[in-house]
Simulated scan of single mutants.
Amino acid sequence: MQKVTLERAKTLEPRFPNKSTGVFGGQSSGILNWNDIAYPHWYKIYKRLVGNYWQADEINMSSDVKQFPTLSEEEQDAYLKIIGLLSTLDAPQTRTALLISLYATDASVQSIMAVIAQQEAVHNESYSYVLSSVVSWNEQNESFQLGRTDELLMKRNELLTEQYNTFVENPTIENILKTLVYTSLLEGMFFYSGFAFFYNLARQNKMVGTSTMISYINRDELEHGRFITELFRATLAENPEHNNKEFIQWVYDHFHQSVELELEWSHYALAGVEGIDMDELDGYVKYRANKMLRMMGLEELYPEHVDNPMKWIRAYVDNVDGTKTDFFEQKSRQYTKTSDLNGFDDL
């Protein structure tokens, strides 16, 4: 199969129709009429994303400032490591979202990715905000250095880093699909053991300001994950030559590798933290991987982990569910109806 390098989408091309003929490599004028787009239900996603607007400094951190010194050594260590992890993942998401939008020939995708990029920038700012509230500048800086100094964290992020950089160097449909796979993993699975840690603190009435901020980030990431999985499915459906056993096996292999790396990292970062059952956390990570695979239209990798083993997390944030349906074999109206069924359930 010939791998054609994509060109960046033209800003305006009046000879082409307003409704794009393809999400990547298609033809579009660049003029966006939300009432005339290829995937009409994406307007609802855009509206939900815009409705989630928030700013980090709206969150009162005064109680967290007093509580942080009272946390156990294990809790303080995990707090700093996980903020370091989250900042390492969210910082490049702003650039990745913008890069994907540069090659998108569907103006609705460009607009949605612009909102996602802005929200990822807010997320990264929020990590600076919470750390500046509770620790010294030197400790803040040390936490933000973990992504380039902690051997286990670098190992955990190596495959994602490699794929993101490959997309920069070689923007083909295949690499866009693979980047969307890793973005789905990031938005839907990589963050979640870290989120669980902060929610575990909150259920003990500790660091409630931080957990409130995390719940806002979590809500955003759920919407990002929903859209990225839909974009993956649309791209794969429009480029059926990539919908083959080799590529699907690549997806399963990289999901499996990512789960194993996440489990290794979680045991390292959360060792000795009171209230975290590591067996439950392992099941939760696999449960999240299964959920993202379903949203991508694929089979589950871990059939013994179809239910959430940490149901108490539901008290902190709702979740976007995904169902395994052959969406893109159906008409747009049927697709929209099916998408509407993908409502909120337990995290």
Rank of each mutant, 00 (worst) to 15 (best):
318 D>H: 08
204 Q>W: 00
65 V>N: 00
313 I>H: 05
76 Q>P: 04
293 L>M: 14
259 V>I: 10
169 E>R: 13
302 Y>D: 08
326 D>C: 01
116 I>T: 06
62 S>Q: 14
4 V>N: 11
83 I>Q: 05
241 E>V: 13
316 Y>K: 02
102 L>W: 11
127 Y>T: 06
164 Y>L: 14
346 D>V: 07
327 F>G: 00
38 A>E: 09
7 E>T: 08
221 E>N: 08
284 Y>A: 01
314 R>L: 03
65 V>K: 15
128 S>R: 09
91 A>K: 14
149 T>Y: 01
288 R>C: 13
142 E>P: 00
198 F>M: 07
132 S>M: 10
315 A>N: 15
338 T>N: 15
328 F>L: 11
16 F>S: 07
37 I>T: 13
151 E>A: 13
98 L>W: 02
303 P>W: 07
322 G>M: 09
12 L>D: 02
155 K>G: 04
112 I>Y: 08
108 S>T: 14
38 A>N: 09
158 E>S: 14
318 D>M: 05
37 I>G: 04
131 L>P: 08
82 I>F: 04
147 G>K: 03
315 A>Y: 06
41 H>W: 06
58 E>G: 11
134 V>P: 07
57 D>T: 12
181 V>R: 00
8 R>M: 08
275 G>K: 09
186 L>V: 09
190 F>Y: 14
70 T>G: 01
188 G>V: 04
191 F>D: 11
138 N>G: 11
344 F>R: 07
257 Q>T: 12
89 L>F: 02
8 R>I: 07
333 R>I: 09
31 I>V: 14
216 Y>K: 15
212 T>Y: 07
45 I>G: 01
276 I>D: 06
69 P>L: 11
279 D>F: 09
98 L>R: 03
93 Q>R: 02
322 G>T: 06
309 P>D: 05
173 I>M: 01
135 V>C: 13
30 G>P: 02
336 T>C: 12
294 R>E: 08
265 W>F: 15
247 F>T: 03
81 K>G: 06
151 E>Q: 11
125 E>M: 10
147 G>V: 03
154 M>C: 05
174 E>M: 04
347 L>C: 02
260 E>S: 14
67 Q>Y: 11
321 D>M: 13
258 S>K: 06
94 T>G: 09
106 D>H: 10
97 A>R: 06
242 H>F: 15
246 E>G: 02
143 S>H: 05
341 L>D: 12
327 F>H: 03
212 T>F: 05
289 A>R: 12
113 M>E: 13
336 T>N: 14
250 W>L: 14
74 E>F: 10
257 Q>P: 00
248 I>F: 02
67 Q>E: 15
88 T>C: 04
320 V>I: 15
114 A>S: 15
83 I>H: 10
331 K>S: 13
196 A>Q: 02
105 T>E: 12
7 E>M: 06
216 Y>G: 01
198 F>W: 09
129 Y>L: 12
301 L>R: 04
216 Y>D: 07
301 L>P: 02
107 A>H: 03
167 F>W: 07
63 S>A: 14
110 Q>I: 04
177 L>T: 10
272 G>A: 01
76 Q>F: 03
88 T>F: 03
345 D>R: 11
41 H>C: 01
295 M>Q: 15
17 P>M: 05
146 L>E: 08
289 A>K: 09
39 Y>G: 01
3 K>I: 10
304 E>W: 00
340 D>F: 14
29 S>H: 10
150 D>Q: 05
309 P>S: 02
